[in-house]
Design a protein around this nucleic acid. Sequence first.
RNA 1: GGAGGGGUCGCAUAGUGGUCUAGUGCGCUCGCUUGGAAAGCGAGUAAGGGGUCAAACCCUUCGCGAGUUCAAAUCUCGCCCCCUCCGCCA
Length: 425
Amino acid sequence: MLDIKFIRENRDLVKEAARKKKIKLDLDRLMALDEKRRKLIAETDELRKLHRESSAETARTGGLEGIEKDKIIIKLREEKDKISHKEFELNAVESEFDEMMLLIPNIPDLSVPDGESDAENLEIRTWGEPKPLNAIGGKDYLTLMKEHDMVDLERGAKVSGFRGYFLKNDAVVLTMALWHFTLDELSKRGFDLFAAPSLVREENMVGTGWFPQSKNDVYKTQDDLYLSGTAEVAMMGYHAGEVLEEKDLPRKYAAFSPCFRREAGSYGKDEKGLYRVHEFYKVEQIILCKSDHQESVKWHEELTKNSEEIMQALRIPYHVVLNCGGDLGLGQVKKYDIEGWIPSENKYRETHSASYFHDFQARRLGIKYRDAEGKMRFVHSLNNTAIATPRFLESFIENNQNHDGSINIPEPLQKFFGAAKIEKK
RNA sequence: GGAGGGGUCGCAUAGUGGUCUAGUGCGCUCGCUUGGAAAGCGAGUAAGGGGUCAAACCCUUCGCGAGUUCAAAUCUCGCCCCCUCCGCCA
């Protein structure tokens, strides 16, 4: 959410933001509602004030009886009636206003390129040597995983439906080793570790900016809780409604959680394998920092660097792209995706997504802090994937395979995996 | 799933329909006092919204929401959370 005062004074910026993000927006409607709203607030306040004065007077002259009393009560009743009518009018305007406010996009950074979709994201750097499949060993990850009895997709679909999967044996150990390794790396970098809830209240979905837009992509339970698609939601809700101290910022959190996505509207995309599944696991990095653009930029770069270092430690060639306007979420100011190299597809595919929001999420969630002068401010928030499984197995296994079909476990991961290789049984 | 108790200013607590514009204590801030400090004394002590160049000023808020009433911290209903207990359970 943006500050209405900011919107009022920067209409062109907001319109440009909507254009860049390819979001439909009737800003004139919002401005008209805002004006109406303020007028009604002033009128309501005035009526309330008068009524309050009358009530106080009545209270002071307590024991009145008969005609005198009736007269006063009639007067009070009339005042109250006027207030009710005014409040009714105000409520109608405010609820439409509030609804629209949730749809106002955050302003993307100037460095964000124009573009419709992820196809127009800009590559900003690469690491490692991306090699085609035949140069590495010649097998795609599913073939390899089946050979090693690491996955069962058929029974996954039988039990769990479309996009269902079972991981088995070394894949289970490898997956857990990846989580553990990642958490360990982040802990070393000063992150507090969390195992976060996936089941969350609606207000957190709205607060992070996932709702109302992406409601269709999220599973809802019969208790009106939602199955979150990322620990970002729970971790942002963690401090909702709180006032933090400036000295306690930044807060750096690494949160593990199961993640759920309906993938509505993605039929036909990545139907095979472990890349796009309904149920997966993720370690997410979350940072809350001071309300300052340079701070946000600094931590955004650091979050990205952390994930790059994890990619490097695990020997996955990757590139980093700067996401274009059309590929940004409502609240995002700027986003980098890290895409791991997939030899079998001869291309890079998204494994991490690092974005910052300025105070967009904090405003919706009410996460504030008292600055050095004692002034209340909204924190800035950022997040980035640290590792997402089983998606990550695709690039991991293909890039670390040997000609004999065995899979190397890079040195930093060995103490978590317990061996240096996955060998043919 | 069931039974009961509770949620008031940073903390503790008072308040069961009208002077609550929420009292008191503690804490905190400032001042007086002092050689300095403590104690004592005095004043202040929130958030959100409207308004304004900024202020003054005004409105709202006693877990959240709705209702009854001229008037709600106080009465009614729904919800959320916390505590105690029974049941079930990894």
